[in-house]
Simulated scan of single mutants.
Amino acid sequence: MIPIYKPYMPEKIGDVVTEILYSGQLGYGNYGRNFESKLKSFVGCEFILSVSSYNVGMQIVLSTLGLQLGDEVIASPVSCLASNQPFAVKGLRVVWADVNALTGTMCPDYVRSKITKNTKAIFHNHFCGYLGNIDEINAIGKEFGIPVIDDGIEAFASRYKGKRLGNVGTDITVFSFQTVRLPNTIDGGAIVFKDKTLYEKALLIRDYGIDRTIFRTSNGEINPKCDIKIEGFAGLISELNSYIGIRQMEDIEKLLGIQHDNALVWNKKFENTDSMHSLVITSESIPNYWVYGTLCKNKIEAIKDFKQSGLYATGVHINNNVYSVFNNKIHLKGVEAFMKYFVAIPCGWWFNNK
């Protein structure tokens, strides 16, 4: 059966991997900085930092924004649990936004209706690599002075108005490089900032709040004059993970091209079908086609039929507003309709769609 996800790994990396393992330099260093440089060039951004995992990246974002226990954030329940679990860890109040039942993307009007004086951030998830209404959500954030965070956990390399996500005018963007993503660093991620001040704050938070330029004295001892003023995490990505990321970035355009070609084939196959159709794509956007999204009249039967034909099909995620950890089991009409019909099928680099 053709899998819905598959980890990519470049060939012939063993020699350098062995070299890194015995180099005495395993923590963040030259490979880490090189990886960030490649990410900057690809995304088209200036302020980007790599992190050891997507979860750590989200925690860094929450700390950088100064979010505190009880603060409200608006988020989509149509997303990976990994996107929303950090809110529970931080003790934030999650206000769920409804979605467009044809696209799975946050409804701008609904987001606007949920803004209060306690709203501190809007987390805009781009479900399975399909981008939402970026300009509209960003405009709402700007109008109310609320930061908008593009949650690109599954959307690295997706495009909006010809630009990669991370370079579309949003305040902050978070990416995952976990095993089934492109690129994958086995585990890892990245954060993009539009604002240099927030970026510089996040650099400290990524490394326990330490300013490494003054952390040690000339004789190598910890400098007592280097004060730690903010909370921080062990968020630095290793040299091994960074090297794998570098090698993956060398191949990413080719891999994305295969996924796009596979999607074109699916588009034609679903043009004249009554029982299912392709997921609607928001205006001026191009998904990364991590998966290919469909809407099926009978989801259970469609998944069964796809699997019988040799294609692994799945709903991917369950809407997060059903989980009691978020203490907000709200009824959302668009969310329920979308989840009732959404089915993802393979579109990845690992197969030739004919």
Rank of each mutant, 00 (worst) to 15 (best):
E231Y: 02
E231G: 15
E231A: 15
E231T: 12
E231C: 15
E231M: 15
G232P: 06
F233C: 04
F233R: 09
F233W: 10
F233K: 07
F233V: 04
A234T: 06
G235D: 14
G235L: 11
L236F: 01
L236Y: 02
L236H: 08
L236N: 08
I237L: 15
I237C: 05
S238N: 05
S238D: 01
S238T: 15
E239V: 05
E239K: 10
E239I: 08
L240V: 14
N241D: 00
N241W: 00
N241Y: 03
N241V: 01
S242N: 02
S242D: 00
Y243R: 12
I244C: 00
I244S: 02
G245F: 01
I246C: 11
I246A: 06
R247V: 07
R247G: 02
R247E: 12
R247S: 03
M249W: 00
M249Q: 06
E250N: 12
D251T: 03
D251M: 05
D251L: 00
I252N: 04
I252A: 12
I252H: 09
I252V: 15
E253C: 04
E253W: 01
E253Q: 12
E253S: 12
K254W: 04
K254E: 05
L255I: 11
L256H: 09
L256E: 05
G257L: 02
G257Y: 03
G257A: 11
I258L: 08
I258A: 06
Q259R: 15
H260Y: 08
L264C: 08
L264R: 10
V265M: 04
V265T: 14
W266A: 00
N267V: 03
N267E: 11
K268A: 02
K268C: 03
K269M: 12
K269T: 07
F270Y: 13
F270T: 14
E271G: 05
E271P: 00
N272W: 09
N272P: 00
N272H: 15
T273C: 09
T273Q: 11
D274Y: 13
D274G: 10
M276C: 04
H277G: 07
H277I: 07
H277F: 11
H277E: 15
H277C: 09
S278V: 14
S278K: 14
S278F: 06
S278P: 10
L279M: 13
V280Y: 09
V280I: 11
T282F: 00
T282Y: 04
T282V: 13
S283T: 14
S283L: 01
S285I: 11
I286F: 03
I286T: 14
I286E: 09
P287E: 07
P287G: 06
P287N: 09
N288L: 14
Y289V: 08
W290K: 05
W290D: 03
W290Y: 10
W290H: 05
